[in-house]
């Protein structure tokens, strides 16, 4: 298992280098000038030229890329052009906020998603099934900016139960967590439902029923254990994607997280900051996948034996 994890981490190094290289080239191909953007309406040609040279932004592309790479290897992601602060410190300061939001959103999505999926599967084609599947479809398909506004309108402006926006305590994270969690809950509910339906067709379920087990026992003791394997995998990957940037949610609810930083960086063509946040997000996604694989192997002995043979 340890070897497997180490191998996976080693394999991801070229992935990281590839992603940063592609990003570097992409950002240089699309039009944009970070210094002109810093000055906006007050652009003065002399100042732009001078500051560009002072920041070494006029160096050749490969020089800048290798400077970034060698810095990154030493743990220094450089200094943000727009915010004038160390990229590492910016991300590290924003990450706990994003982590908090993502954790709350994940909990919301599990609390809604898993029971909804189970109920829908057990009461297949009933009203409950249709209701929950409709509800999850709504969560998946409703744009976040819309559900966010709707919630702000109802719960903050009309009912005055929750604050509109900001990040100053638990009550501030309730709405964004529900908005964000709802959209993942849909995916989890659908997956739980289909996976459970699939498992319920197997012979050992029939055997369990034949033994005289009650339906609740069949589902909780036998079916769920196997049905939730793909769900757990999705959950691990989903947390990674929640962490790597709930961009819109963070903007609407004023949460100073990693998503806000990434959007700042793209808009400002702030190469060091963007590189840093993309690198960070990539690492999270890779780690999320790794955790998913490891969880999978713990839950499913067949996978574990494959890992042992070196075939992940």
């Amino acid at each position: 298992m340890l070897m497997f994890a180490i191998r996976r981490i080693l394999v991801s190094i070229p992935v990281l280098i590839g992603i940063t290289a592609i990003l570097f080239v992409m950002l240089n191909v699309i039009p944009g000038d970070p210094v002109a953007l810093l000055m906006k309406e007050h652009a003065s040609p002399e100042v732009i030229a001078r500051v560009t040279a002072q920041m070494h932004l006029d160096d050749p592309l490969w020089t800048r890329y290798f400077r970034f790479l060698s810095g990154a290897l030493q743990g220094d992601l450089g200094t943000s052009i727009k915010l004038n602060r160390s990229v590492t410190s910016l991300i590290m300061k924003a990450f706990p906020n994003t982590l908090y939001l993502a954790a709350c959103a994940a909990v919301v999505s599990w609390i809604i998603g898993i029971p909804a999926g189970i109920l829908s599967a057990v009461r297949r084609d009933s009203f409950i099934d249709r209701f929950f599947m409709g509800f999850s479809l709504l969560g998946v398909s409703m744009p976040i900016f819309w559900s966010a506004l709707l919630m702000q309108y109802i719960f903050a402006l009309k009912l005055k139960w929750l604050p509109v926006s900001g990040f100053y305590g638990f009550e501030y994270v309730i709405m964004p967590a529900i908005v964000l969690g709802w959209s993942s809950a849909g995916v989890i509910a659908r997956l739980t439902r289909s996976s459970l339906l699939e498992v319920m067709r197997h012979d050992y379920i029939r055997t369990a029923r034949a033994k005289g087990l009650r339906e609740v026992g069949v589902i909780s003791g036998h079916a769920l254990k196997n049905a939730l394997i793909p769900v757990v995998t999705i959950m691990a990957i989903q947390i990674a994607s929640l962490l790597s940037g709930a961009v819109i949610t963070e903007a609407i609810f004023g949460i100073p997280g990693v998503g806000r930083i990434s959007i700042n960086a793209i808009q400002a063509r702030d190469m060091p900051l963007l590189q840093g946040s993309v690198l960070f997000a990539t690492v999270l996604v890779i780690l999320g996948n790794l955790v998913a694989d490891i969880l999978y192997s713990i839950l499913d002995p067949r996978i574990r034996s494959q890992m042992g043979r070196g075939k992940p």
């Binding site: 506004l149 702000q152 309108y153 903050a156 402006l157 005055k160 604050p163 509109v164 926006s165 900001g166 903007a251 609407i252 609810f253 004023g254 100073p256």
Partner: peptide, 18 residues
Amino acid sequence: IRVISDSETLRLLFETDE
């Protein structure tokens, strides 16, 4: 001084006296 990038959120904050 709060940073509020969304104009709709800003109006809601103003109307809820924040």
